[in-house]
């Protein structure tokens, strides 16, 4: 596995992480090494094996659809970088 700088730039865009040139190069080298470890998996025959997404193959339980929580908007919004009138403020996305 060998990543190009363009590959890393595309991943960084997808992941919404800004990387400068030095970081891009460092990430590229380290991802090459990490994927040389991961690529060992390709040697295993997994034809017909059901993927294991979870430690226990159990059905997710359903709980009764009833209101159980108090109104915690103010408490939660106290953590936000910017709020106004009970709303989270972000840069304008629609002109």
């Amino acid at each position: 596995m060998s990543f190009s700088s363009d590959d890393i730039a595309r991943l960084a865009r997808l992941a919404r992480i800004r990387l400068d040139a030095v970081e891009t190069n460092d990430v590229r080298e380290k991802l090459d090494a990490i994927f040389s470890l991961i690529d060992a998996l390709q040697a295993i025959d997994t034809a017909g094996v059901a993927p294991m997404a979870h430690a226990q193959d159990v059905m997710l339980p359903l709980r009764d659809d009833i209101v159980t929580r108090e109104d915690c908007r103010a408490r939660f919004q106290a953590q936000a970088p910017e709020v106004a009138d009970g709303l989270y403020i972000v840069p304008r996305v629609v002109e």
């Binding site: 960084a12 992941a15 992480i17 970081e23 990430v27 380290k30 998996l41 997994t46 094996v49 993927p51």
Partner: peptide, 29 residues
């Protein structure tokens, strides 16, 4: 950041089966 980027790659279009699905199958084995 590195782990987020690795995860982004293995879940991205065209690579999901080769990495994420494969890893889940080996996890069962």
């Amino acid at each position: 950041k590195r782990r987020i980027l690795v995860g982004t790659y293995v879940l991205s279009q065209g690579y999901y089966d080769a990495y994420y699905l494969k890893a889940q199958q080996v996890r069962r084995l």
